[in-house]
Amino acid sequence: MKLSFNINGQPQSVEIEDPNTPLLWVVRDIMNLKGTKFGCGKAACGACTLHVDGEAVRACSYPAKFAEGKKVVTIEGLGTRENPHPVQQAWIEHVVPQCGYCQPGFMMATAALLAENPNPTDEDIDNNIVNVCRCATYTRMRKAIHRAAELGQE
């Protein structure tokens, strides 16, 4: 099928053979945006989290056909080095990443949480940020999420 959607602010059309191909592979292998990661393929780890119409979605288990006509944002579209998103700014201030592989997923999940709940409590964070980080950078991430909330309100 021909799939038309908006990715990181740009309208795009791609030809995909199987409409049920996970959006993750369309983004990574066809759009060549490698920031969205493959972790488990079963929506269990969150490494592939991106936004579809502003909602955090685990792209490894999201059939590409559902993105038709929608707005998709990946880590590459969240912010830039010149103009980082508050979440990315907070991540930099707290030097959060270690290996870094899961971090785009966490930042996308955090950005979606803050869009809905600009000042989350620790409990909100516990309940909503449920991705897996094997380097276990959770303690710094929690601080960075609170800092991103501050930056977002400035």
């Binding site: 912010g79 980082p84 870094g100």
Partner: peptide, 10 residues
């Protein structure tokens, strides 16, 4: 490697 990891470099 902070920026590469915060901005999703390949």
């Amino acid at each position: 490697d902070l920026a590469a990891k915060v901005f999703g470099d390949p």
